[in-house]
Amino acid sequence: PDLGLTQLFADPNLIENLKKNPKTSEMMKDPQLVAKLIGYKQNPQAIGQDLFTDPRLMTIMATLMGVDL
Results as ranks from 00 to 15, higher is better:
residue 32 Q to L: 13
residue 42 Q to F: 07
residue 10 A to G: 11
residue 29 K to I: 03
residue 56 R to G: 04
residue 15 I to H: 02
residue 16 E to D: 09
residue 25 S to I: 06
residue 23 K to V: 13
residue 17 N to M: 12
residue 22 P to R: 07
residue 1 P to Q: 11
residue 42 Q to W: 05
residue 55 P to A: 11
residue 33 L to N: 01
residue 59 T to F: 14
residue 34 V to F: 03
residue 40 Y to K: 01
residue 25 S to Y: 06
residue 55 P to C: 08
residue 38 I to Y: 06
residue 13 N to S: 08
residue 2 D to H: 14
residue 25 S to T: 09
residue 29 K to R: 10
residue 18 L to N: 00
residue 52 F to Q: 13
residue 9 F to A: 03
residue 12 P to A: 09
residue 27 M to R: 01
residue 52 F to T: 08
residue 32 Q to D: 13
residue 44 P to G: 06
residue 28 M to G: 01
residue 56 R to Q: 08
residue 17 N to A: 12
residue 62 A to D: 09
residue 2 D to M: 07
residue 69 L to W: 03
residue 4 G to V: 15
residue 18 L to I: 03
residue 64 L to T: 02
residue 67 V to I: 14
residue 18 L to F: 02
residue 5 L to W: 14
residue 15 I to Q: 01
residue 5 L to M: 12
residue 42 Q to Y: 11
residue 3 L to R: 09
residue 54 D to R: 00
residue 40 Y to P: 01
residue 43 N to T: 06
residue 34 V to R: 04
residue 10 A to Y: 06
residue 15 I to W: 04
residue 62 A to T: 12
residue 47 I to R: 04
residue 51 L to V: 12
residue 38 I to A: 10
residue 50 D to V: 03
residue 55 P to V: 10
residue 5 L to T: 06
residue 35 A to L: 10
residue 66 G to S: 08
residue 44 P to L: 10
residue 39 G to R: 12
residue 6 T to Q: 15
residue 14 L to R: 01
residue 65 M to Y: 07
residue 37 L to Q: 00
residue 30 D to E: 03
residue 39 G to D: 15
residue 63 T to C: 06
residue 34 V to L: 10
residue 47 I to M: 08
residue 62 A to S: 10
residue 52 F to S: 09
residue 14 L to C: 05
residue 62 A to H: 08
residue 64 L to C: 03
residue 61 M to T: 04
residue 19 K to H: 07
residue 49 Q to T: 13
residue 47 I to L: 14
residue 9 F to Q: 01
residue 34 V to N: 03
residue 21 N to V: 02
residue 65 M to R: 08
residue 13 N to C: 08
residue 50 D to W: 02
residue 57 L to P: 00
residue 39 G to C: 08
residue 59 T to C: 08
residue 54 D to Q: 01
residue 55 P to D: 09
residue 47 I to P: 04
residue 1 P to M: 08
residue 15 I to T: 02
residue 53 T to Q: 13
residue 36 K to F: 06
residue 33 L to P: 00
residue 61 M to F: 11
residue 21 N to P: 00
residue 7 Q to V: 10
residue 19 K to E: 08
residue 38 I to L: 15
residue 2 D to K: 14
residue 28 M to H: 00
residue 46 A to N: 13
